[in-house]
């Protein structure tokens, strides 16, 4: 079989597989319980955050431990606008994403002048700062108890309250973001990102020498990642029905990075594998302890898995098929 024929056959196979998976996901709520749906919703929401992080870390090579801050800013903005300003919830969601993007743009410029570990420290300090402010600016954010009883997302007069409503919403949002990211990665922006990734063999000097405005591309991706997180935060707040500082402490930023490292930052699918694994572990443990205190064990186990992955499989789980010998497309395409 010629190479062209093989590629075409593979394309049909991929299309077929894609359609099958798509149908499966669409019909899922008919077969599974609300509980499972809520797990999938959480996986989907966290995946949106890690997807942005995957672009930023895995492709552009910039370490940001600030995603939890943008998750929170997006969430809080959405809630505050709905609650205190009477804005239409979908509008609040959009505004939350936009505002977070602006914040990321303004802060990204000075932040991204740093690289490597200093950048990580600044972003994690920023995440901690935002979480602290959220807990202290009582007049705005409701302090430690957060905000609740705000108008939630609805379509027409039909308010989204059931799990499967949010399941489809998250599925749609994640799919859109995933496709957008995939297009981004396979384009000139993807090449420019990789050109700037010092960890994987890129070179900022060389990129600049051929006309790439490296600061601009890093800033663009930073803002994109922040917006992804903000959208996730807004939907999260609407789903849970409240928002409080605990949902996005600096620990979450670290967990998001842990998720993408475990999932594999070189491949967009890693952004989904990471959260899936984390949530599976969390839920399995709470099943185990039957309502006891799971938090400690889930951290221990998740942390140990992270260590193991780091030592044995630094590329993350997404790299496993390639390591085991399955040949796929070139260039790190998902």
């Amino acid at each position: 079989m010629s190479r062209g024929q093989r590629n075409r056959q593979r394309s049909w196979q991929k299309l077929g597989a894609g359609v099958a998976v798509g149908l499966f996901l669409l019909l899922l709520p008919l077969w599974v319980s609300s509980y499972i749906q809520s797990i999938l919703i959480f996986i989907g929401l966290y995946s949106m955050v890690t997807l942005g992080l995957c672009l930023l870390m895995g492709y552009a090579g910039q370490i940001s431990l600030g995603q939890s801050a943008f998750f929170g800013i997006g969430g809080y903005t959405t809630v505050i606008l709905s609650l205190k300003c009477g804005v239409w919830p979908w509008g609040s969601l959009a505004a939350g994403a936009f505002l977070t993007g602006v914040v990321a743009y303004v802060l990204g410029k000075p932040f991204l002048r740093l690289t490597g570990f200093p950048l990580a420290v600044v972003t994690v300090a920023f995440a901690m700062l935002i979480a602290i402010l959220a807990g202290r600016l009582d007049f705005l954010t409701g302090g430690h108890d957060g905000l609740t009883n705000f108008p939630r997302l609805s379509i027409g007069t039909w308010e989204l309250t059931k799990d499967f409503h949010y399941y489809y919403l998250v599925l749609a949002a994640l799919s859109l973001l995933f496709l957008f990211s995939k297009n981004l990665v396979r384009s000139k922006i993807g090449r420019a990102m990789r050109a700037v990734d010092l960890f994987a063999g890129g070179s900022e000097t060389a990129a600049q020498s051929v006309g790439v405005n490296t600061s601009e591309i890093k800033l663009k991706i930073f803002v994109i990642a922040a917006v992804y997180a903000a959208v996730a935060g807004g939907i999260y707040a609407n789903y849970i029905g409240n928002i409080h500082p605990g949902s996005f402490s600096a620990w979450w930023s670290i967990l998001f990075v842990a998720m993408i490292v475990i999932g594999g930052s070189g491949n967009l699918w890693g952004a989904i594998i990471g959260p899936a694994l984390y949530i599976s572990i969390r839920e399995s443990i709470s099943q185990f302890t039957r309502g006891g205190i799971p938090a400690g064990w889930e951290s221990v186990i998740f942390g140990m898995i992270l260590v193991t992955i780091l030592i044995l499989l630094p590329g993350g789980i997404a790299e496993l098929p390639r390591k085991l010998g399955f040949r796929g497309d070139e260039g790190g395409d998902p």
Partner: peptide, 11 residues
């Protein structure tokens, strides 16, 4: 560049 500075992470 003297050391080429080829982007190693792409074709």
């Amino acid at each position: 560049f003297q050391d080429d500075k080829i982007f190693l992470n792409m074709s």
